[in-house]
Design a protein around this nucleic acid. Structure first.
Lengths: 207, 207
DNA sequence: GGCAGAATTGACCATTTGGTCAAAAGCAGG
DNA sequence: CCTGCTTTTGACCAAATGGTCAATTCTGCC
């Protein structure tokens, strides 16, 4: 486990505990109100700590926000890393979609936090996006292009295919209220899983 | 033209002018920083007016934001309204996708403003989403279901299909920085247009 | 039990910011 | 040019908010 949040990093038990508490509270608050909309008082209250005590563990509001974002990227990119270039092409992509949709269902706050950041121009993540993310996408794009050229999936623009996976899966987390407003009491994720599975299958299966 | 922004509504020439100026400046600022992140001073500066002067035309910051959102929905829903139930099914949906993608390309600020609002729970739009939007989607879903049952398009969940159109097209506006970080200097919209066209075609054409 | 360092907090501060107001400046019609 | 109005603004205010700090409490260790 190399996740930042879980890495005690030489910190005392109580430090690790409280930092975790704060990060969890901050995720709740930031994902709902954004960086500027959230206040230290809200975060402190949600964590059950006093404001100065929160500042004892983190240098400032932005430091909490940054720590959160850093811890996030790992988890977020993980489903992509799990794709097996030697596996069955259509199956691998469908499984990827499935993992990404599960992430949206199980970690909607994380998804919204990320979305908020990117929509506002990703001032804190531009580097990462242009570096790590881009490299990862290039790698996967090469694999997909290989599959495509070998006739194992229908011809497709690899990078726009990847965008499509992101867009379609994250939509259910980020636009949750809209989706639910339209669907009423129906569970969005059951329908989404069937729909996306069918959709990508039709799109990818070679004729 | 029934758009709120353009409706003089009995206001003097100068009123209409200045209000328009303010709304345009506010769109720029709100879409970039969100409701809380934007300040009246920023909006005033962007509009080339003094802060009290801005408050002379609008009751407050939220009033500007609300006016903006109201003016938006019309434009945003328009492409859906243009779908012709008597037209060619696949062609109609492809044209819809195309219109929606054009909107993302030509009005990214509007798209981001809307996205920001919905991600944060749409406190000001829940009613509209559950009323007007839901009704509109239900209507279109019925049309699509008809096409599907008549075998004129492949079987598909109508409402999730609509979500897919929204997600895929708006992604290019809302996540612009991410898309560009991955693509480099390549124009996102040319590739997106081809990709989405091909994707929906494969998905919808009956076997 | 006592002590050193870690953890916690109430009180406080400076800045930002949404909003007010009374006075000044424009402006159109007579 | 005067008059009544609309428009504009500088000065100001109160509340919210990020952050500080000295003092107090707690904890682990001998």
């Amino acid at each position: 486990m190399t996740r930042k949040e879980a890495d005690t990093g030489g910190r005392s038990r109580i430090q690790t505990e409280k930092r975790g508490l704060i990060l969890d509270a901050a995720l709740e608050v930031f994902s709902q109100y954004g960086l500027k909309g959230a206040t230290l008082d809200m975060i402190a209250a949600a964590a059950g700590l006093s404001k100065p005590n929160v500042l004892y563990y983190f240098a400032g509001k932005e430091a909490i926000y940054t720590a959160l974002l850093e811890g996030l990227l790992e988890v977020w990119l993980d489903p992509m890393r799990q794709i097996d270039p030697t596996g069955d092409p259509v199956g691998e992509i469908l499984a990827y979609v499935r993992r990404k949709l599960d992430l949206s269902r199980d970690y909607p706050r994380e998804s919204r936090l990320f979305a908020n950041e990117v929509i506002q121009g990703a001032p804190l993540m531009l580097e990462t996006l242009e570096g790590e993310l881009r490299a990862l996408v290039d790698d996967l794009a090469a694999v997909i292009r290989g599959w495509s050229e070998a006739g194992r999936i229908a011809p497709v623009d690899p990078r726009h295919l990847i965008f499509s996976v992101w867009a379609l899966t994250q939509h259910y987390a980020d636009f949750d209220v809209q989706v639910r407003a339209v669907l009423g009491s129906e569970d969005p994720y059951a329908g989404a899983a069937r729909h996306l599975d069918e959709m990508f299958r039709r799109m990818l299966e070679p004729r």
